[in-house]
Simulated scan of single mutants.
Amino acid sequence: MSLSEIPALTEKLLAAKKAKSLSFADLETVVGRDEVWLAALFYRQASASEDEATKLLNALGLSTDLVPELTGYPLKGLGPIVPTDPLIYRFYEIIQVYGFPMKEIIHEKFGDGIMSAIDFTLDIEKVEDPKGDRVKVTLDGKFLSYKKW
Rank of each mutant, 00 (worst) to 15 (best):
W149D: 13
K142M: 14
L75Y: 12
F120E: 07
Q96E: 14
I95K: 14
I95A: 14
P101M: 02
L27P: 01
K18W: 03
K136Q: 09
G141S: 11
M115T: 03
Q96N: 11
L60R: 03
A40I: 01
I95S: 09
I105Y: 10
L56E: 04
K131W: 05
A59E: 07
G79K: 12
T138H: 11
I95M: 09
V36L: 00
G113H: 07
A19M: 08
L27S: 00
Y43G: 00
L13V: 12
T84D: 13
D26H: 07
G61M: 07
F42C: 01
A59K: 08
L22N: 02
D129N: 15
D129H: 15
I106E: 04
L22T: 05
L122A: 07
K147G: 04
G79F: 05
P130M: 06
F42Y: 06
L87C: 04
R33K: 15
P68L: 02
L87S: 12
S47Y: 01
T10H: 06
K18A: 15
D85N: 05
E128L: 12
T138D: 08
K136C: 02
L62E: 08
K136H: 07
L139A: 13
R90A: 11
V36Q: 01
M1W: 11
G141T: 06
P86L: 09
S47K: 13
A39V: 05
L57S: 00
L139Q: 09
E104F: 06
P74A: 13
S63R: 12
E69F: 06
K12P: 10
L87R: 11
D85E: 15
L41M: 10
S23I: 03
G61Q: 13
E93L: 07
F143C: 05
A46P: 00
D133M: 12
T29K: 14
T54K: 12
I124P: 02
P74T: 10
T29S: 10
V127N: 07
A53L: 06
G79V: 02
K148S: 12
L70R: 02
K109I: 01
L38Q: 03
A16F: 04
P74N: 07
T29V: 06
P130S: 12
K131N: 13
E125C: 07
A53K: 00
I106A: 14
G113P: 00
K109S: 03
K136M: 11
A117F: 15
P74G: 10
I81P: 06
R134P: 10
T54G: 09
K109Y: 06
A46H: 00
S2C: 11
D123L: 11
M115N: 10
V36W: 02
F91L: 12
R33H: 01
P86T: 05
S23Q: 08
E5I: 09
W149S: 14
A39P: 03
E35L: 05
A25C: 08
F143V: 13
P7I: 08
K17L: 08
S145T: 14
G72Y: 04
M102T: 01
V82Y: 01
D34M: 02
D129K: 05
L3K: 15
D129C: 15
V67H: 02
K17F: 06
G113C: 00
V137D: 02
A53C: 05
D65A: 01
A25W: 00
G111S: 00
V82A: 05
A117T: 15
V30K: 10
